[in-house]
Design a protein around this nucleic acid. Structure first.
Length: 553
RNA sequence: GGCUGGGUAGCUCAGUGGUAGAGCAAGCGGCUCAUAAUCGCUAGGUCACAGGUUCGAAUCCUGUCCCAGCUACCA
C-alpha cells in the first residue's frame, strides 16, 4: 500500500482582542470543511488554527482594562475556542503565538535570515502616539493643529525615529515574480493574484521586523553586534527589543508543522498544501511570507486561498464596533452547529464578498435543510419503514437507476468545487441531487405502489422496493458527502437509514470516502431502518426565527 | 488620482454577439409519504445611463454615474 498522502492546511490566526463574530469564524468554518473532507478521503490531514497575540493593540487593550496582558489574552483565547467548539471546528492544533515552541521557531527564523544577510540594523521613522505607539499615516487625521490620532485627538503626536531591524524584502522581488510565474495557481482566486503581481511589479521596500518601544512580544534573539541577545542568567535581553508582530505571526504556520524542533514532522507537513486567509492580509501571505521562507531556505506554501467577507445589509463590513455583527453563539443556538456551518458556507461565496442577514440565513436553512434535505430523509425513512416493515431496501444497480446516473455527474462536480475551494458551488451541486431525489418521489408515488402491492400486484411490490432502495441510497450518499459541512447530522442520517457511521467525530478513521460514495456500495448488505426523526426542525419566520437584538436584519 | 473588477427579476446571483436565466420569496394548481413539507405551472427585468460598431449587443467600443478591491509596516 502506498503511504497516505498528507494534507496540511491552516487558517489565519485571529487577534483575540474581543469576542469573535461569525464573520471572523467564517474562514475557520470553511477550512474545517476542507480539513474534514481530506480526513474522510483518507489523507493524513493536519489542520491548524489559532490566535495571534502579540499585537501592540492587545497589550494596549489589556492595559485599558487594567488587566495583566497574558491573563487578558488567555481569557480572550478561551472565547475563541468556545466559539469554535460550538461550531464543531476540529483543529489538530490550536496554536497560540505565545506558545513556547512558537517563540523558538520565530527566533530561529530571525537567526536564519540574519545569517543569510537579509537582516540589518536601520531606523524606522513615523508618527508616534504616546498612548498607542507608531501609527500609520493612513490611520491619522490631518488637522489645523497637525496630525492627530483618532483615538486620542487631544494628544500631540511626535515624529519619532526608532532603531529597528529590517528584513531585506527588496532583494526578493525577482525571485517572487519567478515563483508566481512557475506556480501560476499558487494564489487564488485569480484576481487576488493579479493584485499582488501589480504590487510586486512596483518594486518592494524593506520592512522593519523589530520593535523596542514595548515588550509584549517575542524577544529579538540578536544584539546589534550579531551576538545572542541573552543575559547571563539565560533570560532574554530586553534591550534587544521584540520581534515585530507580523514577522512572528506568519511563522505560526511552520511552528505548527514542527519547525524547528521536529524535523521529521516538518518534512512530512511542509510545504503546507493550503493557507486559507482573508482578503485584508493577502500581501503578508503572498509576498512577505514566501520571501521570509526563501531567506530561511524553506519552500513557500503550495497554495494560498483568499476568501471574501460576510457583509451586513447595505454592504457594510461587519464589526463589533459597528454593532452589526452576527454572534456565532446566537447563530448556533438558532440553526444548530451544522445549520450554522451550512448557511454561512452556502450563502456566502468563498471567493468574494456577499451580503448576508439573519433573514437570508433563515430562508436558506428552511429551504435547503428543513424542506429539501431534512424532509427527503424523513419521508424516505417513513415510507420505507411503513411499506416494507422496517427492512432496508437495496438500491437498484447503477445501470438500472436514473438517480445513480445523476449521481455520477453530481459527485465529480461536488468534489471538483470543494477541492477548488468553491465551497458554495459544491453545496449547490449536491443540493441539485437532493432535488432529483425529491422529484423521483413525486414521479413514482410510492404510496400508490404500496396500495397496489397490498392488492397483490407483484410488479408494484418490486418497483416499490426498488424506488425506496434508490431513495435510501440517495440519502446515504448525500449525508456522507455533506458530512464535512454537517459533521454531527451526517451520523444521524446514516443511523436513520440503518447504517453505522464509520468516521470519528473529526472525520478521521473509516473507509476512504470516495469509495463509500460509490452508488450501491452496500446494496447487498441487509439491514433495518432506524426511526424517522426530523433532522432540521423548520424555523418559523415570525416567532422562533426572530433575529436576536442587534443582529443585522 | 492610477490600475482592476462590478452594476441583470422583490432578494442572492449565473449568463462575453443570435428571440433575457436559476434558486429563494410571491400567486395558482396537483399530491398526501413527509418538518403546511413536496411536485408542477404562472407572474415578475427598457440587463446603471447615453452614444457607437453590427443584419443582430446584457455580451464589443467610447463617455458618464454609482459600488468594491489594490495602491506597504493596525492586524
Amino acid at each position: 500500500m502506498p503511504d497516505r498522502s498528507s494534507y496540511y492546511l491552516t487558517t489565519a490566526i485571529a487577534y483575540p482582542n474581543n469576542k469573535p463574530g461569525l464573520h471572523t469564524l467564517y474562514e475557520v468554518i470553511g477550512a474545517d470543511v476542507i480539513a474534514r473532507w481530506h480526513r474522510m478521503k483518507g489523507d493524513a490531514t493536519r489542520f491548524l488554527t489559532g490566535t495571534d497575540e502579540h499585537s501592540v493593540n492587545i497589550a494596549q487593550r489589556a492595559q485599558e482594562l487594567g488587566r495583566d496582558t497574558r491573563e487578558f489574552v488567555d481569557e480572550m483565547v478561551d472565547l475563541f475556542r468556545e466559539a469554535e467548539d460550538g461550531l464543531l471546528i476540529s483543529p489538530d492544533r490550536f496554536i497560540r503565538t505565545t506558545d513556547p515552541d512558537h517563540r523558538r521557531a520565530s527566533q530561529e527564523m530571525v537567526r536564519r535570515a540574519y545569517a543569510n544577510g537579509d537582516v540589518y540594523l536601520g531606523k524606522y521613522e513615523g508618527w508616534y502616539c504616546p498612548n498607542e505607539g507608531f501609527k500609520a499615516p493612513s490611520d491619522l487625521h490631518e488637522t489645523a493643529d497637525g496630525m492627530r490620532c483618532p483615538n486620542h485627538p487631544n494628544i500631540d503626536l511626535q515624529w519619532l525615529t526608532e532603531r529597528n531591524w529590517f528584513f531585506r524584502l527588496s532583494a526578493y522581488r525577482d525571485r517572487l515574480l519567478a515563483h508566481y510565474e512557475a506556480h501560476p495557481d499558487w494564489v487564488q482566486p485569480e484576481y487576488r493574484k493579479n493584485e499582488m503581481l501589480a504590487f510586486l511589479r512596483q518594486g518592494l521596500e524593506d520592512i522593519s521586523i523589530s520593535r523596542e518601544t514595548f515588550h509584549w512580544g517575542i524577544p529579538f534573539p540578536i544584539r546589534d553586534d550579531g551576538s545572542p541577545a541573552t543575559l547571563e542568567d539565560g533570560s532574554p535581553d530586553p534591550a534587544a527589543g521584540v520581534i515585530y508582530v507580523w514577522f512572528d505571526a506568519l511563522i505560526n504556520y511552520i511552528t505548527g508543522a514542527g519547525f524547528p524542533d521536529d524535523p521529521v514532522a516538518f518534512a512530512k507537513w511542509w510545504p503546507a498544501d493550503l493557507h486559507v486567509i482573508g482578503k485584508d492580509i493577502n500581501r503578508f501571505h503572498t509576498i512577505i511570507w514566501p520571501a521570509m521562507l526563501m531567506s530561511a531556505g524553506i519552500e513557500p506554501p503550495k497554495k494560498v486561498w483568499v476568501h471574501g467577507w460576510l457583509l451586513a445589509a447595505g454592504g457594510d463590513r461587519m464589526s463589533k464596533s459597528r454593532g452589526n455583527m452576527l454572534d456565532p453563539g446566537d447563530v448556533v443556538a438558532a440553526f444548530g452547529a451544522d445549520g450554522a456551518r451550512y448557511v454561512a458556507l452556502r450563502e456566502v461565496a468563498f471567493d468574494k464578498d456577499t451580503e448576508v442577514s439573519w433573514d437570508s440565513f433563515v430562508r436558506r436553512y428552511n429551504a435547503d435543510l428543513a424542506n429539501d434535505f431534512g424532509n427527503l430523509v424523513n419521508r424516505t425513512v417513513t415510507m420505507a419503514s411503513r411499506y416494507l416493515g422496517g427492512v432496508r431496501p437495496a438500491a437498484r444497480s447503477a445501470e438500472a437507476s436514473e438517480l445513480a446516473t445523476t449521481w455520477g455527474v453530481t459527485l465529480p462536480a461536488y468534489a471538483r468545487s470543494l477541492e477548488g475551494c468553491l465551497l458554495h458551488d459544491a453545496l449547490a451541486s449536491l443540493w441539485g441531487f437532493v432535488g432529483d431525489a425529491n422529484r423521483l418521489v413525486e414521479a413514482e408515488q410510492p404510496w400508490a405502489l404500496a396500495k397496489a402491492a397490498n392488492g397483490g400486484d407483484e410488479a408494484a411490490a418490486a418497483r416499490l422496493r426498488d424506488v425506496l432502495g434508490d431513495l435510501v441510497e440517495a440519502c446515504r450518499l448525500i449525508g456522507l458527502a455533506a458530512a464535512p459541512y454537517l459533521p454531527s447530522i451526517a451520523p444521524r442520517v446514516l443511523e436513520q437509514l440503518g447504517y453505522s457511521y464509520p468516521y470519528a467525530t473529526d472525520g478521521n478513521g473509516g473507509p476512504a470516502l470516495l469509495e463509500e460514495l460509490e452508488w450501491g456500495r452496500h446494496a447487498g448488505v441487509p439491514g433495518s431502518l432506524g426511526t424517522a426523526a426530523p433532522l432540521f426542525p423548520r424555523l418559523e419566520t415570525e416567532a422562533a426565527a426572530a433575529a436576536p437584538a442587534g443582529s443585522p436584519s
